[in-house]
Structure formats: C-alpha cells, structure tokens
Design a protein around this nucleic acid. Sequence first.
DNA 1: GCATTTAGTTTGTCCTGACAATAGGATGAT
DNA 2: ATCATCCTATTGTCAGGACAAACTAAATGC
Lengths: 246, 246
Amino acid sequence: MANSLNLNIDRSSPVPLYHQVVQGIEAAIRSGNLEPGSKLENEIDLAAALNLSRPTMRKAMDELVRAGLLVRKRGVGTQVVSSQVRRPLELSSLYDDLVARGGKPTTDVLTFSHVDADAATREKLALHPGAKVYHFTRLRKVDGKPLALMENWVRDDIVEFDGAALATAGLYGILRNGGVNFRLATQRVGAMIANDYQAPLLDTTPGAALVTMERTAVDDTGRLVETGHHVYRADNYSFEMTLVQR
Amino acid sequence: MANSLNLNIDRSSPVPLYHQVVQGIEAAIRSGNLEPGSKLENEIDLAAALNLSRPTMRKAMDELVRAGLLVRKRGVGTQVVSSQVRRPLELSSLYDDLVARGGKPTTDVLTFSHVDADAATREKLALHPGAKVYHFTRLRKVDGKPLALMENWVRDDIVEFDGAALATAGLYGILRNGGVNFRLATQRVGAMIANDYQAPLLDTTPGAALVTMERTAVDDTGRLVETGHHVYRADNYSFEMTLVQR
DNA sequence: GCATTTAGTTTGTCCTGACAATAGGATGAT
DNA sequence: ATCATCCTATTGTCAGGACAAACTAAATGC
C-alpha cells in the first residue's frame, strides 16, 4: 500500500540503525498506523526511502518476523500479521512484568539462608560438591493480593546477597546491578494442586489449581546463575507466548 | 580451542549454506564433539576454513545463538552454552512431538460437527458473522494411556474435513497437506482442576491438576486458521521452552 | 606494586553488488 | 475458454570489504 511509513532515522544515535527501524515499524503497528493484513513496500524501496542498505532493512524485518509482527513470502511481499499477536516471550522476571503493567508489586521474604547446595541444586547449577548457594522463598503480592510463591537458589560467588534487599527489589534487578548479564533461560511450565502450605499463603484453598514454573538462567559467560521454582494461582496468571515457524 | 570442527559443506545442495553450518555445529554440540563451555574459533577463521563469507558464517551463528546453543561476547569470542539447554519452543503439534519421541499416539474423535461459529470463536479467528467452522473434540493417547483432551475450531474455507481423517492423522498434518503453511501461533499455558467430564477420559480423578493450553495459529497469508483448547494431565506433560535475551 | 595507557583480538554494524528461487499475473497457443 | 508458458515483482542467499565498539592482556608510568 505504499504506506511510506514516515520514520526518522538518527544516524548519530548510538542505537543501531536496524533497531531504530524495528522500533519504528513496531510502533506503527501497535498504534494502528499500519493495519493488520496490510502490505508493506518491498525491501528495496523501503531501504532506499530511508537511505539504508538492503541488508540493514532486511535485518530489521527479520527481527519483526521473528517477533511475530510480520509475515514474508518470497515473490509476494511482506504483510502485517493479523492482530491478536501479543508480545513474544522474553527473558524478564515477574517483577518486571508487573511493573510494566502498572501494578504495585510487593515482596515478603519468607525464608533466607546461605547453605550448602544439595545434590539437585548442584546438578541444576553445575556446581562442585561443597559449593554454597543462597536459598530463599518469597511471596509476591500485587496491590496486596498474593500472586506467586517463589523458591530460588542462587550461586554465591557472584553477588553478595541479603534478605532485606530482596524485599525491595526484584531478584533479576539485584543480579543485573551486580554485573550479571543474562543471556538465556530454560523454563518449564506445568500444573499442580495447592497443598496445605501453599494455599493459605496464596489466599486460596488446598486443592486449588496452581501454575508451576521452573527456570534456570544463564549469563553471558555461560554460568548457570539462578534456578527457581515458582507457583502461581491459576486464576490469576498464565504464560503467553508466540511461536514462530522457521 | 581451534577445534576445526570438520564440517562438509555441499555447495550443490539445495540446503542453504548457512543452514548446513547450523546443522553441522548443532550436531557437533549434541554429539558432545563440541563440549559445553568450550570456545569456538573466531568467525573470520571459521568462515575461511569452510570457504564461506563472514556474513554467511555469522548468519549461521546468529541462528544458533537464538536457539540458545551458543553465546557470543564482543571482544571475547563465542562459547558453547552449558548443557541443560534443550530444544527451543517450536511451532509443532503434540502429535509431532510424540512421534518424534518414539511414542505410539492414537486419537479418538469424540465429537465432530460443522456449525456456525459462536461469538467467541469468531473473535478468535477474526470471522464474519454467519461464518461456519469445524468443531471437534479429540482424545489423544500414547501407548494406550490417555494424555490430552483437545477441543478445536477450524475455518471451513480452507480444507474439507471429515471426522474419520482426524482419527489417523494429526490436525496440523491434515492442514499442511491441504496447502496451509503455518507461520506463527500464540499460545497461553495455564492450569485447572479436572472436572467430572474430563477426569474419566484422562483416566484420573476429579480434582486432579491439569495443564491447559490455548492456541491460535496463523498461516503465511495472515489467516487465523485454527484455535484450540487443550488439557493435559499435569503428571504427564509440561511445556519446556528456552528464552533468549535480545 | 599499582594504576593507567596502549595494542590486539573479536564481535557488531553497515555498505555495495550480484544472482537464485518463488509466486502470481499476463500472454499466447490450442 | 482452457491450459501451458513467459515475464515481472519480490524475497532469499551469498560474497567481500570497511570501520566501530568492547573486551583482554601486555606494556608503561608513577
């Protein structure tokens, strides 16, 4: 539709050009300026219009395809994907999620200790026998209502921890401040029944459905930094994700 | 570690060069030939060793980084990520998953109908009022044991459906045979308690934990082809995924 | 001995250019 | 009118080069 999408590319900005394009197109889509189903101009013309090379333009569109916002077809063109598609799965913590949604998260630190890692934890974090970890359980509330019960184990050779800090900042925030750059995480989502310990903390009854999530996070040096087991009230929380065919 | 990883690149193959590299390195990692934590040669030398250009080599490594198998750091190098990392989330059906694992899946078609889409379905598939859809429920078993109860709605203007075909082939297989090229899907994973209808079908008791999954799939033309609501026994199934920081 | 600078290595970004593969419509023959 | 063929538009793949930015480690100065 020759929608010339008037983007501003700032060549003096430290933000890479392709990323500026990603942000621009994403904003145009989310604002409705680019309608779902509409066709974009072809790569060559778009690149020329913005004074960019085709590889740069292509890299930007690659990201948007991966994010599930665009669909490409050889010989045909590129199309904005029909709405419904939300943000893809990102490596962010629940705390970040809640802050982004405008909720007011608070955290109760239920237990905090610095202990020898047991066999299961050593396996998950690839630690030597005798290594110690921080182990703690937290209860996350939003606007006073309990949402998640979290149990975590963190290597002790990266950041000095204390229980008080955990009450005011998210785990990932503390680790990032301590110089940890997260790169990837594996997580497993399942379900279980609330037991007698969990139910009162989450303000529900034993036997209620809970969503479970286990996650292990890796930093940019390849270290397994943190592993955790979280449970959420099923009526409050679910995991949404976008899968892209490759 | 100058691990020269002896790959064979076949320039006459229809498989893109960068993808051959992806497959080669992935195989080397999964076979243990490239150990977790070990460092790869730098991009330039690797490209030269395989007689490829650096952009091609880079594209291959990009994919592996996204897949969570490699970690890169400017000025330092590229490293094989510590094991633990399984396959990332892909757009495949449960049927495909089970076949890949070597199980013997069978399917009972419980109900099958061709009906007017209700408001909720029209919203999910972006259909006009009065449009019709195929609606069916299936019970998926592996080696005779029930695993998943699935309820799906499919547009009726793409592929002609009949209940018998569903008993022998997976939904996605039928649609793919009908010319549908899936591109992406959004799904939401949560939990619920088995009710009186679900429990006997899944060979469990009312009140047991179930994993729920809702999915809507989009094809390469942007059409919302299929939406479904599946439930799994929590003791048999969970969703595993790899999240990559961008 | 310690902090600072400097040089080297490696990945990150960006460019120009070229050809291949595919889809879809236009064209032409039957 | 129908079918096969050609043409065009568009994305997919690949090459080679250049410079920037970040990190490491060695050399330097105090």
